[in-house]
Amino acid sequence: MKKEITIVRTLDASRERVWKAWTDPKELAQWWGPNGVTIPTSEVDLRVGGTLYIVMLAGKELGPLAGQKWPMKGVFTEIVESEKLVFSNDALDEAGNVLLSGVTTITFEEESGKTKLTVITSAAGDAPGTDMMLQGMEPGWNQQLDKLGKFLS
């Protein structure tokens, strides 16, 4: 069973611009979270071994989930400016336990002045099926959030 996801997008901006949106913590905080969520904390230590740390805060619009915090922590393993970004990404619960684990590779390719962005992200650590099941049970990305997000958008 495939546990890797590949998504390709063409963005109407230069690679440098897109790179900045990904690596400047102030910019990241502006587009990262879904509807109803704000980003009170975003830290980007852009170097190999450096930490990526983003906290999502559920707002009033998310009703029963309001006030919940969903931190995400990652470590950069490869950085090629405006070309490639590789980092681990772990979703944590409020106690710091790892709920979701993945590795994400992002490549930035120039295409007629636009940027072809390719995201390859693994859904779980190693073995297929079971880890995903385990992690599918955690509260952060539950159906409720999906539904509420849809309802409010």
Binding site: M1, K2, K3, I5, I7, P34, L100, G102, V119, T121, A123, P128, G129, T130, M132, M133, Q135, G136, W141, D146
Partner: peptide, 12 residues
């Protein structure tokens, strides 16, 4: 598991 993958993709 495949439902989870689907939602993970949706998030991204």
């Amino acid at each position: 598991a495949s439902e989870y993958l689907r939602r993970y993709r949706k998030i991204w």
